[in-house]
Amino acid sequence: MVDDAYLAAMSVEQYAEQWRHGIARPGSTVLLGLRDGGLHGWAAFGACRDPDVAADVGELWALYVAPEHWSSGAGRALWTQARAQLAAHYRSVRLWVLAGNARALRFYTAVGFVVEMDSVQSFELGGQTLQEIRCVMGLRA
């Protein structure tokens, strides 16, 4: 969904700097999905970054699984661990997903997220305009 030219132009140094910045955020957590000595996926989460949101709302910033491990349970396992850690600190969780990412939207709704259809927002990435939509889930009664 993101332009191939933009992704190809990213340097390892730029990507590593983004990771260093994200991991250094206070309260951030990154989980790695490891199996048979290989990295199959990862999840990153912490406090919600939306403006004017209560302190008891968390956010799943990203959940990625390598395509060769889709439908293997890796994503669900990462989400299960992330949810348990988020529930220890927050009453609900949000995430933003690219509006055209039907596979991700199916996954998130299958694990209990609700799509907020009126939350679509646009952003620019590498000269391309993309849209994302917010999904929400309660973590505690």
Rank of each mutant, 00 (worst) to 15 (best):
A44W: 06
A8V: 07
L78M: 02
C135L: 13
L139Q: 06
F45G: 02
L95K: 11
D52V: 01
R25Q: 15
D3T: 12
G100H: 11
D50Y: 08
A9M: 03
V57H: 12
A24P: 05
G126C: 12
L95N: 11
G38F: 09
F107Q: 00
T29Q: 09
M1H: 11
G37R: 13
S92N: 01
L39D: 04
V120F: 10
E13L: 06
S92P: 03
Q131S: 09
A55M: 10
A102Y: 08
A74E: 04
Y6K: 08
L32T: 00
A5H: 15
R76E: 04
G127N: 10
R35P: 00
L39C: 06
A16P: 04
A5M: 14
A110Q: 08
V93N: 01
G22N: 15
L95W: 08
Q121I: 01
G33M: 00
Q81Y: 07
F107H: 01
R140M: 03
A47V: 11
M10A: 09
V53T: 06
G38A: 13
E13W: 06
V114G: 07
W70D: 10
W70T: 05
V114A: 15
V97L: 07
L7S: 12
V97G: 12
R106I: 00
M117N: 09
Q14S: 13
L34T: 04
Y64S: 00
D3Q: 15
G138Q: 15
G112T: 01
R140V: 05
A88C: 04
G41A: 02
F123Y: 15
Q121V: 04
R35T: 01
G33A: 10
A16V: 12
S11P: 03
M137C: 04
L7V: 15
A87M: 02
G38I: 06
T129V: 12
A77V: 02
G22T: 08
S72T: 14
A43D: 02
R25Y: 12
W42H: 05
A87R: 02
H69I: 00
V115I: 11
M117W: 14
A110G: 12
D36I: 02
F45E: 03
G126F: 11
M10Y: 07
T129D: 09
R76F: 06
I133M: 05
V30N: 00
A87I: 03
R140F: 04
P26N: 05
G27N: 04
G126W: 12
T109R: 15
L60D: 04
W70I: 03
A84M: 06
S92A: 11
M117H: 14
R140C: 03
Q85S: 05
F107M: 01
G112S: 00
T129Q: 08
G41Q: 02
R76M: 02
S92E: 09
